[in-house]
Write a protein that binds this DNA or RNA. Sequence first.
DNA 1: TATGAATGAGGCTTCATTCAT
DNA 2: AATGAATGAAGCCTCATTCAT
Lengths: 194, 194, 194, 194
Amino acid sequence: MAKDDKRELLLQATLELVAKQGFHGAPCAAIAEHAGVAAGTIYRYFDNKDVLINELYLTLEQKITTALLEGYTLEMPFRERFLHLVKGVLKFFITSPLEFKYMEQFHHSPYGVAFRRDHMLGQTESGGSCSIYSELFTQGVAQQVIKDLPHVLLFDLAFGPIISVARNHILGFIQLDETLIEQIAEACWDSLKR
Amino acid sequence: MAKDDKRELLLQATLELVAKQGFHGAPCAAIAEHAGVAAGTIYRYFDNKDVLINELYLTLEQKITTALLEGYTLEMPFRERFLHLVKGVLKFFITSPLEFKYMEQFHHSPYGVAFRRDHMLGQTESGGSCSIYSELFTQGVAQQVIKDLPHVLLFDLAFGPIISVARNHILGFIQLDETLIEQIAEACWDSLKR
Amino acid sequence: MAKDDKRELLLQATLELVAKQGFHGAPCAAIAEHAGVAAGTIYRYFDNKDVLINELYLTLEQKITTALLEGYTLEMPFRERFLHLVKGVLKFFITSPLEFKYMEQFHHSPYGVAFRRDHMLGQTESGGSCSIYSELFTQGVAQQVIKDLPHVLLFDLAFGPIISVARNHILGFIQLDETLIEQIAEACWDSLKR
Amino acid sequence: MAKDDKRELLLQATLELVAKQGFHGAPCAAIAEHAGVAAGTIYRYFDNKDVLINELYLTLEQKITTALLEGYTLEMPFRERFLHLVKGVLKFFITSPLEFKYMEQFHHSPYGVAFRRDHMLGQTESGGSCSIYSELFTQGVAQQVIKDLPHVLLFDLAFGPIISVARNHILGFIQLDETLIEQIAEACWDSLKR
DNA sequence: TATGAATGAGGCTTCATTCAT
DNA sequence: AATGAATGAAGCCTCATTCAT
């Protein structure tokens, strides 16, 4: 058994329980049981529950960034890069429903609130994917291919719909396929382009 | 003191506490204290905490619908009606940050889950604003002024950015003004229009 | 409306609620509602709930004593007097199921415990029916028609079965009629007689 | 410390508190304190307070049945078997005052009501002592040694006095000894015999 | 390193009693 | 005299965390 096996088991158990039942349905005892370890073991790998919850969130952010950067190069045409990211995020979420649900729960929980409070400084350089978007938008605005709006708004316009669409797909209110994904990405582009 | 004064005080206290600190930060004792009443008083006005939470949510839904319908008539041109709704939602939220935060918390909590489960039947005719959007999209697609996509997706494209923008405004990451609101609404329109 | 009308209403409401649902199902609010008065009104007629509960109990004891003494004279033959009392108690209970249930609940509740504690002194002269039995047993033993046992035991032998039978009748486990009542009373007599 | 030590401590604490002060005087906090454990510990051994209360009751029923069957065989003469049971119940109760008081409290409480409601099916074959009495009475009636009355009444006649006597002994109103117990049992027999 | 029994603070709710009207 | 809204102590239960093994 690898050294950090139990750590992984705990993260995975947390992901599943929170995604499926919310934080409300994921007390430490349940997480430990789901991971097949004792409750006390949690505290050998994480200082406390908050740390476990937050580390899992950071891990998931990393996974997204990694997935997005696959096949993404600064040499690609601007529009193509934009569509790559938008579709990438959407595809990541609909193929990772647990991860999506976890991140959503996280954002709207005391954990997410505290996380934002603690990470507000240096938010753009947190090593996540923020810098990618920032770089993209800066260039797009400079080249006058997208609207001249604050980055935050450009981000909202591009990804607000993606989050919403992903949720409805995962909840079963819509069944996305390659064609629809393409149409959605194009609509997001329409929203930004000049 | 008006008859239902305490009821209002409790609703307001709940709104503020949940908006500012989440459900986690709104135990009954705190709600009562914030409202300036004793804990037991909650149960003279609401059967239990769940009912209080849900009634507040329903009240807020009503407020939005009322605000949106102000000045909205079926005689208005299609595009104008769309912009009226999009800007209406956005303006409502940024002028009602507590209400926005409360509703977001609610949606992503056990309360929201139970609420959706209990109200899934007849959801389109709940007297809320769903039917407004539905009617609008049906007409827009028929007249070929907006993209021919499932209503769910049209809704996501139109309001996904609005929610996202409203949140960032409320969290202080952007400061919206009339001009920006106009630009955002136009971008949403660009996203839908054919 | 008679002066003590509400007092009666409260006693009756208490009787019914406690008999049917136990003390557990008879909070002050329910008693008041059942009586058709406001909760606070209870305290105009009784110092507190304990007093209400106890006064009702005393009232019922009085009712039994009154019923038993009807047609009871010291001139009757001993055996006849005994049967009169035994059958009288049984008949009283099965025609007054609410009263029976109330008294049973009372005896086995904190109220009954406190009552016994407070009335232990002078128990034989509480103005109830104790003295009747005491007189009867004294005479029976002296005349050597019944066993020479402590009065307490004679009482238990005579009335222990009666309570038990009454309960089973009221709970519907047996349907008593005149013949059975006669047989039961005779059996109690057999138990005591020499 | 034995594995189920705390479970026993909790049962014992509950027995003592309820016996001495009634259910009213046995809140979870008091039970835990009396057992020398924390309040939360109750829930490691029992799903909730109801379960604790009921399990204790079942345990006590078992104890009685076991005690009664000691030295009881179907080969014994009928009268002897009857006296064995009657005296057995009486002796069990007066040597186990806490158990007696607990069971009395239980029967006349919401717990007892719920218990009867849930166990009404198959009550005669619950493995308890009901079947013993039933078998005994059936035989006695058939052999024409006891009165031909419904079993329920025979039970009341035989054990109604026993309960009553046990209570008075335990409350200190009478001091039973071997001679008195014998006389009481004989009186019960007189009550039943033909 | 791992366990899981034990802890006790804190959450929701009930209800006897008070008091302004 | 009567009301009933308001109170707040006290009850049951959950769960993050600790610690002896």
